[in-house]
Nucleic acid binder design. Structure first.
Length: 838
DNA sequence: TGGCAATACTG
DNA sequence: CAGTAT
DNA sequence: GCCA
């Protein structure tokens, strides 16, 4: 029986990854529960229709179970008369504060426990499901000599003899003998010999180069110029870069980088190597490649790391903990013998050499680790975004095959609910599903998928969705905060690490994007392209490790320019990104964050001498009323809104609206409806069932007035041209009593456009960083099929002229009371809002 | 080389 | 209309 | 800036 399900049951396809999340969250809904929940939703929809005072918005089952403290309107001060009762109101105190666990069972997305701020030693016993590891559990001998010995019981690899680098004994000679006959290998070794001879002069040249260039902008604290520095971080380490036939170019580049960083490079493993660069996954394959029976023949303490560890050390300018870059993270315990750790002579040498003057104050490890002191590096001050060992948040290794997606939201506000929620049928299948399953079973490849991303919008969307899940699971609840350029708050040190192999690139492009927002004359599409860059590099989109710009051009959307930037980042040669990163650009970008200040005016302000938000507050720049509000409330408005607070604001508005007209429908949209843990603003949608011949005309005005009276709404930013139109938009600022000022939008929607509006405003458009992916995709897709979709509805027969201007409005294709109707007409499966994220 | 979503409010 | 917003 |  094809019953309606809350969650469309997906077929075995990419969505199964999301389903996996469902299962792993140990909060799986049983059928009965699902039905019960469906019933409650239905009842709730019904409840919306009944008279006032019935508190129709509350899902029935929550009340029945007695899980929720009932929010009494009077208690909350929702009525105009009693708002003095509010001073100490805090959303979190009233909403669900005490019963998160049970409530989560009602959530539409499964949840995991909130990451615990454990002490390192305690993490093992109770890691949240789906968390593979925490940095604390991983160690490498080089980085953490004795902390690792606490729990790592060495078995297997890396137990061989270690010699001084001066007297290495080759290992695994067999395999290399076999390779010798091959032409590729000969080429490789020839290049290697040439390379070895050229090392010494390169190094000195590079060093001089680095110092000269670093100096010029060092004090500017921009993170653009860090690339390519790194000094001699790999000094004293010996790297085996196993030959991969046909990869001469790649190898040359790697040899070069390693040796410029002071490391030694060898092709064949020997008894002195400290690291093996290996991007593959199989220990057995690696051992075979090296001509070893087992990796345990390697000298003790040898670490197998992926190439990106080197890249990031270079970028960071210091030796990073290898834990997140191990080639075999799942089996790391076997790779490292606790006993192997005691320093060999070489390590001891490094330690004593390098620990001179180091206080190691910036590490949380209880054990002092031998690390390059910052003084040893021609250091350039920079945000410590690569300090991967700092975070105690659960660490996940998402690009591995054992990918587990952890839900991002402790959704306490059960969604979906309310009118307009129609549930997809589990058996539906749409174009996107086809693409995804084809991807899954290998019929098409990822590259193709990217290639057709424009034409097959969902495909692109899919990647973005997965990306988001992965991004935010390792992120903590306030992860969105780091996406703000909010002056002082933004020092970058508390960023959670996304352990994707190319995450550093995403970070670079995020930064580049931020900066380009302040570059005058930069085409907005160009800027967006860089923003795209952020999305390309999370591991789910790009499961391989990007080693060059050319490599990255495989990705649809990465062209010459982006590729050049990547090369720039990798090589460290100051290029365009470096030279365009001016003080002006950064300042203009900040000025642009003020509400009502855009590119043009921000540049004008700069020209007139404004350099900071404070300047705007103190001097008179002839700001408009709206801009003044933006300046005045700059800090608040640029702070993310926690989910509970969104809900609290919604409740305040909704009850006021219902007080005016009990038949009113009020929904909260935007990122909240998509299930995000925080939002940039609060989007409220309002309509009214017209079955009794009445409409919500005129409601908005009294609503806003009423909310102003009880202090919920504090400022207007833009008001509807016609307050009493069926379609009217109010934009402004409000707050919960005692809370921060928040951007609030209230929109009135004609009843028969409710569905389209739900889609339109659920799409991530209100999310400040979003790419409008869902909306855009859906619209493009609709257009391809000859439809046109806007927030009012789905049209057919829209003809466009060359300029894309609509020649005819077309006509309504569907009455769009529900989202489902639009998805139906388009032949698409309804998607849960939580899956519509950027 | 054109198009990149589409529309509303401010001043 | 340009600029800014969603 | 990227793509068709």
């Amino acid at each position: 029986m094809p019953k309606d399900t809350l969650f469309p049951t997906h077929r075995v396809d990419f969505w199964s990854e999301l389903d996996e999340l469902d299962r792993s969250g140990d909060l799986e809904e049983s059928d009965e529960e699902a039905e019960a929940f469906d019933r409650s939703i239905q009842q709730e929809v019904e409840a919306k229709r009944v008279k006032r005072h019935e508190r129709p918005e509350r899902p029935i089952d929550e009340e029945e179970a007695g899980l929720l403290p009932i929010v009494d309107e009077d208690q909350l001060g929702l009525t105009a008369s009693s708002h003095q009762a509010l001073p100490s109101f805090h959303a979190s105190q009233i909403l669900f504060h005490s019963t998160p666990k049970q409530l989560r069972d009602l959530s539409t997305l499964p949840s995991v426990d909130t990451p615990l701020d454990d002490t390192p030693g305690a993490t093992e016993s109770h890691q949240p499901a789906g968390v593979l590891d925490t940095p604390e559990n991983i160690a490498s001998p080089i980085d953490t000599p004795s902390s690792s010995s606490r729990r790592l019981t060495g078995t297997g690899e890396g137990r061989g003899r270690r010699d001084d680098p001066a007297t290495p004994v080759p290992l695994g000679t067999e395999a290399f003998k076999n390779l010798k006959g091959k032409k590729d290998f000969q080429t490789l070794t020839k290049h290697f010999e040439l390379f070895s001879k050229g090392i010494s002069k390169d190094v000195t040249a590079n060093n001089a180069n680095v110092k000269g260039k670093g100096k010029a902008k060092a004090q500017k604290s921009d993170s653009m110029l860090i690339a390519g520095l790194g000094g001699r971080v790999l000094e004293g380490l010996r790297f085996c870069v196993p030959p991969e036939l046909g990869q001469v170019g790649k190898h040359k580049q790697r040899w070069d980088i390693i040796s410029k960083l002071g490391g030694q490079v060898v092709l064949q493993p020997d008894t002195s190597i400290t690291h093996i660069i290996y991007d593959g996954r199989s220990q057995i394959a690696l051992a075979r490649e090296l001509g070893l029976k087992s990796l345990s023949e390697l000298p003790e303490g040898t670490v197998c790391v992926r190439w990106d560890w080197v890249v990031q050390c270079k970028l960071a300018g210091r030796l990073l903990d290898t834990s997140q870059f191990l080639s075999f993270p799942k089996t790391f315990t076997k790779m490292i013998s606790a006993k192997a750790v005691p320093a060999t002579r070489r390590l001891a040498d490094i330690t004593s050499l390098l620990s001179r003057g180091t206080s190691d104050s910036d590490t949380e490890s209880p054990v002092k680790r031998p690390r390059i002191p910052s003084s040893a590096i021609p250091a350039i001050p920079r945000p410590d975004v690569f300090a991967t060992t700092r975070t105690k948040k659960p660490f996940l290794n998402p690009w591995r095959s054992e990918l587990k997606i952890v839900p991002t939201v402790d959704t306490v506000h059960a969604l979906p609910k309310g009118p307009g929620w129609k549930f997809g049928k589990g058996d539906d299948r749409d174009d996107l599903d086809d693409i995804l399953s084809a991807l899954k079973d290998g019929t098409i490849y990822e590259e193709e998928c990217f290639t057709s991303a424009r034409g097959m919008p969902y495909c692109c969307y899919h990647h973005v969705v997965i990306a988001h899940y992965i991004r935010s699971q390792s992120a903590n609840p306030d992860s969105r905060g780091d996406r703000f350029k909010c002056g002082q708050d933004h020092d970058g040190t508390e960023r959670s690490t996304n352990a994707g192999p190319n995450e550093w690139l995403a970070k670079k492009f995020e930064d580049l994007h931020d900066m380009y927002l302040g570059v005058q004359g930069k085409n907005q599409f160009a800027i967006r392209q860089y923003q795209q860059g952020e999305l390309f590099f999370p591991s789910c989109c790009t499961p391989w490790i990007i080693t060059s710009g050319k490599d990255a051009r495989r990705i649809k959307g990465v062209g010459q320019s982006i590729a050049d930037r990547i090369d720039e980042f990798i090589s460290g040669e100051p290029g365009r990104a470096y030279y365009e990163d001016t003080e002006k650009a950064r300042i203009v970008a900040v000025l642009k964050d003020v509400y009502g200040v855009g590119e043009t005016f921000a540049n004008e302000l700069y020209k007139r001498g404004a350099r900071s938000i404070r300047d705007l507050k103190e001097k008179d720049f002839g700001l408009t009323p709206g801009q003044n509000i933006g300046v005045e409330l700059y800090e608040d408005l640029n702070t993310r809104i926690p989910r509970e607070e969104c809900r609290a604001i919604y409740e305040l508005i909704a009850s006021k609206a219902r007080a005016i007209d009990p038949k009113i429908w009020v929904e909260i949209m935007g990122s909240y409806r998509r299930g995000q843990e925080d939002s940039g603003d609060v989007d409220i949608l309002i309509t009214r069932d017209t079955d009794d011949g009445l409409t919500h005309e005129g409601l908005l005005k009294s609503l806003v007035i009423g909310l102003k009276e009880n202090g919920v709404i504090t400022h207007d930013l833009s008001v509807p041209s016609q307050w009493d139109a069926l379609e009217a938009k109010w934009m402004g600022v409000g707050k919960v009593p005692g809370g921060r000022y928040r951007r609030i939008d209230i929109l009135c929607i004609p009843f028969d456009q409710w569905g389209a509006a739900l889609i339109y405003f659920t799409g991530n458009i209100s999310d400040i960083l979003c790419l409008k992916q869902f909306n855009r995709s859906l619209r493009l897709y609709a257009r391809k099929k000859g439809y046109s979709l806007n927030q009012r509805g789905l049209y057919v027969g829209v003809i466009r002229d060359k300029g894309g201007l609509k020649m005819t409005e077309g006509e309504f294709a569907v009455i769009t009371k529900t989202e489902q109707e639009i998805f139906d007409v388009l032949g698409l499966r309804w998607r849960h809002p939580h899956l519509r994220r950027p």
